[in-house]
């Protein structure tokens, strides 16, 4: 198991930032998503052993987070915000961080050249970090997380501030790491398409609670006894007519969701004909991560809904 928590809780005064979180996250590429204030940052800080939990336990790569140094030896962390030492060169900074992680001087230097080449900053490695563009700084942040070759990478919003090309390059790099054997990735991002591109397993947090966790493909495939129908036309009227015909139908932002029942297909086309609507898709209920996320968050905001 990559991460295993039991009743993990962190309370700041009145706020329960992480609340009784019990989760088992398998090895691989993991997406951590949730709205602002969901507890993602606190969860990451707990995993990095930079915060002591108020209650509960957690293990990262089989090691208790109480043993912070052993945990951090195995983690490469790429923070969201700018955090580089501006008056150091790219190669100097990465090798310095390698040494602070425990690499000897020669290994740190050779690794820093290696990882800077990997992220694509080999030409500019002797320039001072202060002179780097946002995209290059992001790459150096990635390089410093890689220099000691950890088992687990924690990426906090790695594509923040990047232009579309930079974003694509960064996702390629993160994807390459995620696919490498023996390496695991936790990607915390607001950009759900990024998470969908990289991750195979996701954990969705809200209000300090886990509201969903599982294989991305399973979570997105939804219930097998329901169909999704995309309609061009009056969806509400379409859903109402299907209900009148005895089918359990809801009109949602992503289309109509209808329970499978004999005669459904005929009823759908009958309704489309009567409304002059166009059926563009009818099939397995597959959602995007964004749709799933919005649905789950809406559900937690309206208990019982």
């Amino acid at each position: 198991m990559l991460v295993e928590t039991a009743g993990l809780t962190k309370v700041f005064g009145e706020v329960r930032a992480v609340d009784d979180l019990t989760v088992k996250i398998p090895d691989g590429a993991i997406g951590l998503v949730g709205p602002n204030g969901a507890g993602k940052t606190t969860f990451l800080r707990l995993l990095l052993s930079l915060l002591r939990p108020t209650a509960g336990t957690a293990k990262v790569l089989g090691r208790d987070i109480e043993d912070g140094l052993a945990v951090r030896e195995r983690i490469g962390y790429m923070p969201e915000h700018d955090c580089l030492i501006p008056d150091m060169t790219g190669v100097g900074l990465v090798s310095y961080m390698g040494r602070v992680s425990g690499l000897d001087r020669d290994t740190a230097m050779s690794r820093s050249h290696d990882v800077l080449q990997f992220v694509g900053v080999e030409e500019e490695r002797y320039r001072k970090v202060a002179e780097y563009s946002t995209g290059m700084k992001q790459k150096v942040k990635l390089a410093q997380a890689m220099v000691h070759d950890p088992q687990l990478y924690i990426f906090d919003e790695p594509t923040t501030g990047l232009d579309p090309r930079g974003r694509s390059e960064m996702l390629d790099l993160v994807g390459t790491i995620a696919k490498s054997p023996g390496r695991n990735v936790i990607l915390s991002s607001h950009l759900l398409p990024d998470v969908e591109t990289i991750c195979k397993y996701i954990v969705i947090l809200d209000g300090g609670h886990q509201i969903a966790a599982g294989e991305l493909s399973q979570l997105l495939s939804g219930a097998t006894d329901r169909l999704r129908i995309d309609v061009r036309g009056d969806r509400d009227a379409f859903a109402r007519l299907l209900k009148d015909a005895g089918f359990d139908a809801d009109a949602g932002p992503s289309g109509l969701h209808v329970s499978r029942k004999p005669g459904l297909e005929a009823a759908v086309f009958e309704t489309a004909k009567s409304l002059g609507a166009e059926v563009r898709y009818m099939g397995k209920e597959i959602r995007s991560l964004e749709e799933l996320f919005l649905e789950l968050v809406a559900r937690t905001e309206k208990p019982g809904a």
Partner: peptide, 12 residues
């Protein structure tokens, strides 16, 4: 520079 974050994400 917020480099303090980098230091404390290391095993120190």
């Amino acid at each position: 520079s917020m480099a303090f974050t980098l230091y404390l994400s290391r095993p120190i």
